[in-house]
Design a binder for these strands. Structure first.
Lengths: 112, 112
DNA sequence: TGTTTATATCGCAAATATACGATGGTTTGT
DNA sequence: ACAAACCATCGTATATTTGCGATATAAACA
């Protein structure tokens, strides 16, 4: 794109879009699911679960981290990732709220 | 990417990711909000509301349509877009369900 | 110390997404 | 029939995403 126009939108729309973007790849959805399932927030196991190379998984993890949805810290040789529940839940609620606010406006009869 | 690996993931993860991708741009979030607000699902008005050129808006509308989140039909000179409530709500529920299933696994104490 | 192991990061290639001007097709209104 | 209005689509430029091999880093271990 010639210019990035994201700044021209409402803050809340941008925030919602960023959350959605973090979830916009099946690998990242799968990573979140895996992190939640394996109570122990192990790391490299994710690579085994996904059909992707280690470098690629590492990149997706980085994106989830940048989005604030997970945290990661190095533990010796391995590094441990966890869902950042506080932020994750807050964004989830924001999205649910968005859905609810639209639903509230839903007309009785569809116009088209 | 050399190859598109999306087919290598679970169907449900792909579906969720596709929904999220449709919401992953503030313009598309704003379009959905606008469509819900203006009960009359007018069209070109969207262009006036957004800080984007008509061609760009048309493209975003097309993407939302491809994702099944809105419907659109030509009405004389203008074309009328509406939220495809059935599919939209179904995807919203799917996402909420995803969130709920993760939350259910949330440990009492964070490990990292 | 040298080796293995677990990860992150770099650099590259290919695919997609974003944005817009220009253009073309339709439908009204004159 | 002509002009104006509305919108979709094409073509194009640029930016971002996706994916991976190769390499770097750092801890654990022989």
């Amino acid at each position: 794109m010639a210019v990035n126009k994201k700044h021209a939108f409402a803050e809340s729309d941008v925030a919602l879009a960023e959350f959605a973007k973090a979830l916009s790849h099946p690998a990242r959805v799968a990573i979140l699911r895996t992190l939640a399932e394996k109570k122990v927030c192990i790391c490299g196991e994710i690579v085994e679960v996904l059909p992707l190379a280690q470098a690629t998984v590492s990149q997706h993890l980085k994106e989830l981290k940048n989005a604030g949805l997970i945290t990661g810290e190095i533990e010796g040789v391995r590094s441990c990732y966890c869902i950042h529940w506080e932020h994750f839940e807050s964004m989830l609620e924001r999205l649910e709220q968005f859905g609810a606010s639209l639903r509230a406006l839903k007309p009785n009869s569809d116009c088209c």
